[in-house]
Design a protein around this nucleic acid. Structure first.
Lengths: 127, 127
DNA sequence: CCTTGACCTTCCAGTTACTGGAGAGATTAA
DNA sequence: TTAATCTCTCCAGTAACTGGAAGGTCAAGG
C-alpha cells in the first residue's frame, strides 16, 4: 500500500501520515526500491489508533505511550486506565474553565443592548 | 514607566508586553533616550484590556479588533456585541465537543476494570 | 517510444502566541 | 568602581501539522 492508499484507509491526510512517520510515531514498515513508503494492514491499524486517540485530545506523546501499550502483550489495563483517567480529568478541568468563561461572557452579552450607541458593558468590563 | 513596571501593573509578563509591542497590538507610547520602552497609564489600560480579552479566549486579531472599538468613540455597542456573541458561540461549540468527548471517554474509563490483565475496552475502542 | 498526469520524495517555511536565552548596552545602589 | 539589575535586539523553540517548491517514479494512452 502506498501512502495515499494508507492515508485513505486510516482516514488521515497524506501529509499527516508522513509527519507521523517522520517523528517516529507510526513508521512505514517498508520502502519500495524507489523509496516510496509502503504500509501494511498492521501499520494502518496503528494510524487509525492514533487518529482515534488524537480525537480524544491525547497529545502526540500521549499517543506514543498508548500505542506502546496497544502493542504490548504484557500491558495491564490499569496502565491504560490511568492514562485515560488523566485525560478525562484534563477534559473536566477544561470544561470547568469553559463553563465559567461561558457564564461570564453570556452575562455580558445579555446585558449589552447592541444598539447604535457606544455604551457597552462588555467594553466596560474589559477596560 | 519602564517595561517591568508596566508589566506588573498590567499583570502580564515582560516578554509578552514586548511581544504585543512588536506585533503592533499595544506599542509603548515613547522610548527613553537609551531606547527603553516607556509606558503611561493609558497604555497600561490597553494592556489590561488585552489581558482580559485574551482570558476570554479572543485571538490576538480579535483583541486587535476589540481594542480598536475600545478606543473608538464612534463605536456602536452592536459591533461589540456581535464580536462577543461570535466568541460565545465558539465557546458553546467547544463545550459541546468536550461534552461528547467526556461522555465517551468516561464511559470507557468506567468500563475498564483497571487490573493487572491486558484486556481493556479503552484499547479495544481505539484499535 | 514518448508524453502526460498522477503520484511520490525531501526540504523549507508558516501557523499561534508566546517563551527562553545569548550578547550587549544602561542604570542604580553600595 | 563594581556588582546587580534592568533593558535592548535577535534567534530559536514550542505543538501538530499544513502548504508549497523542486524533482524523481510510474502507469496509461497515442
Amino acid at each position: 500500500m502506498n501512502i495515499s492508499a494508507a492515508s485513505k484507509a486510516a482516514g488521515l491526510p497524506v501529509k499527516t501520515v508522513r509527519y507521523y512517520a517522520d517523528i517516529g510515531l507510526v513508521e512505514a514498515p517498508w520502502r519500495s526500491t524507489a523509496g516510496y513508503r509502503t504500509y501494511d494492514d498492521a501499520a494502518v491499524r496503528k494510524l487509525v489508533f492514533v487518529r482515534r486517540s488524537r480525537a480524544f485530545g491525547f497529545s502526540i506523546e500521549g499517543c506514543r505511550e498508548l500505542l506502546g501499550l496497544y502493542q504490548d502483550q504484557d500491558r495491564t489495563s490499569s496502565e491504560v486506565k490511568r492514562i485515560a483517567s488523566k485525560r478525562l480529568e484534563e477534559i473536566e478541568e477544561k470544561q470547568r474553565e469553559l463553563q465559567s468563561l461561558h457564564d461570564e461572557l453570556a452575562h455580558l452579552v445579555t446585558s449589552c443592548r447592541g444598539d447604535h450607541m457606544p455604551d457597552c458593558p462588555i467594553i466596560d468590563y474589559l477596560g
